[in-house]
């Protein structure tokens, strides 16, 4: 039980680091979905089933969908990788 919890924490933190460091916007959006899904699994392991289901459907599925929809509607120039 313990090691499952710790195992889930790894993609949670690594994915979060990747979200803020990766250069491509689309990759960052998908990685945010990965973080949300890891959080859903963590809720599942902790025993908060209601929260786990809601996080998987709303936090991971729909939020990513909304991000992708709005990414598609951005001007071409805005989608490009930032150079700062």
């Amino acid at each position: 039980m313990t090691w499952i919890i710790l195992l889930v924490c790894i993609p949670l933190v690594v994915g979060a680091v990747a979200v803020v460091t990766v250069r491509d916007l689309l990759s960052a959006i998908i990685l945010e979905g990965v973080v949300s899904l890891s959080a859903a699994v963590l809720f599942l392991v902790l025993g908060a089933l209601d929260v786990a289901i809601t996080q998987a459907v709303v936090g991971c599925g729909l939020t990513t969908a909304v991000f992708l929809y709005s990414w598609r509607r951005l001007p071409e120039k805005a989608r490009e990788v930032s150079h700062d």
Binding site: A16, V19, V20, L25, A28, I29, E32, V35, S36, T63, F67, W71, L74, S82, D84
Partner: peptide, 13 residues
């Protein structure tokens, strides 16, 4: 960052 979409992602995190 200075990217607005990245801010939203960060707030999500």
């Amino acid at each position: 960052g200075r990217n607005v979409l990245r801010w939203i992602l960060a707030v999500g995190l």
